[in-house]
Amino acid sequence: MKRRTIATRTIVPSREVQRGIIGGLMLLGGWEAATRLLELPTYVLPPVSGIVQAIVERRAALAAAAGYTGGEALAGYLIGCTIGIGVAVLLALFPWPRRGFVSVATAINSVPVVGYAPLLLLWFGTGIESKIAAVAFAVSFVVFISTLAGLDRVDRRAVDLMRSFGAGKLAILWRLRLPTALPLIAAGMRVSTVRSIIIAIVVEMLGAYGGLGWVIYQAVMQIDFVQVWAAIFVASAISLVFFNLIGLAEWKLVFWR
């Protein structure tokens, strides 16, 4: 549960967060114990301690890779959000092409990223552009759908109230429909954070000059499974940070819920 006071809203680590941390620690502890007790070979599952040690040892390279991937994901995310919200708003103002547009977008999006990633590499090259494009594409769809749903959620009577004041389409959009849609837009944006990191990594694995996906690919080639896990841990960490940053912004922005 979110807690807030009337005037200023303070952040209290909620029971959910505490439970999440405890759960995570228990998982890692169980993992460590299992690998030691069962003496699992590292290519099956390395111990957590080994992975953490690897992260510390290779921190410079991992940080560079994380920055690379994070940069791609963030750029694609911002572009995707802008396109998603922008197109949804346009369709709210000019609704006639809406049905066709939504079906085409849905059809294209039912193909998984790996499906069209080779094409993106072909069109945008092996550099960061192809990753940004893939992320932007996927994010824009999610944000588009949630924005559209949010804009539709508006109370007809509230629209009528605005109309009775002589408000036009733009005033109604700005003062009523967008604020009404904000909770859903924010939810779509929050969900998209994790997706954007995943997609950046997946496309990197298919061809890149750097980034966590590239690190994972190289490590697999060299049969260095500790390195694979180290990169996965770092990816999870940046996903978590990204997700929670947007969640925090959402919590501040959508204060009335």
Partner: peptide, 15 residues
């Protein structure tokens, strides 16, 4: 825009 109208529900904007 020429008549001042108060609908049946208060319809205050929560934000």
């Amino acid at each position: 825009g020429r008549v001042s109208f108060m609908p049946q529900r208060d319809l205050l904007f929560s934000w």
